[in-house]
């Protein structure tokens, strides 16, 4: 096959975002559009998809939550160490309307930051909702302040911001103000709730679906979703809320690296 080869570059900077979540900035001109992802190769360990959370002319960044072999190692890395980059891949978000709401659960806000920055530049009125279990897991608290991005934080335990779920805040916003479009990235059950709320309120939305990926560019089928068989890495990862609700397994189950079905619990 035509070789899609990772380009290895030394880490430029590591940012401590929250408890167990770090960002890594790489000196590589990725040219990703908001919502696209990169495949990141950790030499000798693994290749995994990650959303692009920072980007400028000469570099880009990813924000990783330490959960398994690959992500824990990434979170232990220091400036100067090497990572391989492939991409960008996947569809991008479509910025539309004067008033938009962005919802990031867990590390989900990572994939929304480029869109938020674009919205600020284009003078779209953007409201960000970032949610996590508790205050120590909330990302980008300083970053949104510096950007001047209107942000509502939520925590499950009420230790910071509003107590409750991001979707509670979304419902309140949709009741009180006009929103032209909603964008969401986070645990799939949250995404499903967002899609349903938007459908009920007749507001278009786009969400980014995460699936186990091997190749990232459409050949292996690891990310194909039932029943239609769309490949999340090519036909997604961004889907409209309506498209997402048509995917039978959305919010119900996903497949692991051996194609076995795994049901969604409370978390991804």
């Amino acid at each position: 096959m035509k070789n899609e080869m990772p380009v290895t570059v030394p880490i430029k900077k590591v940012i401590d975002e929250a408890n167990g979540i770090k960002s890594v900035i790489l000196p590589y001109r990725l040219n990703a559009k908001p919502g696209q992802f990169a495949m990141i190769w950790l030499p000798g360990v693994d290749l995994k998809p990650v959303g692009v959370s920072y980007q400028d002319e000469s570099s880009f960044g990813i924000t990783v939550s330490a959960v398994g072999a690959w992500s824990k190692k990434i979170c232990e890395m220091k400036a100067g160490e090497l990572l391989g980059v492939m991409g960008p891949y996947g569809k991008a978000f479509k910025l539309e309307g004067k008033n938009i709401v962005l919802i990031g659960g867990g590390y989900g806000a990572a994939s929304l930051m480029m869109l938020a920055e674009r919205a600020l530049k284009e003078e779209t009125n953007a409201t960000m909702i970032i949610g996590a279990r508790s205050s120590d897991c909330l990302i980008y608290r300083e970053r949104v302040k510096q950007l001047g991005l209107k942000t509502i934080f939520t925590t499950d335990d009420g230790s910071f911001g509003e107590k409750g779920f991001t979707t509670d805040v979304l419902q309140k916003i949709l009741k009180e103000e006009k929103a032209d479009k909603v964008f969401a990235v986070g645990p799939e059950l949250m995404e499903k709730r967002v899609a349903e709320i938007c459908l009920e309120n007749n507001v278009p939305c786009e969400i980014s679906i995460e699936r186990y990926m091997k190749c990232g560019f459409g050949v292996c089928g690891a990310c194909s979703v039932d029943d239609e068989g769309k490949r999340v890495c090519v036909e997604g990862t961004v889907f409209s809320g309506e498209e997402a609700l048509k995917i039978r397994e959305f919010g119900k189950y996903h497949r692991d690296g051996s194609a076995l079905k795994k049901e969604f619990g409370g978390k991804k």
Partner: peptide
């Protein structure tokens, strides 16, 4: 074999 074919849905997509 081995290309996008992991499930009934994924092969259906190739047929489509």
């Amino acid at each position: 074999s081995g290309i996008v074919g992991i499930s009934k849905a994924s092969v259906s997509y190739a047929v489509k």
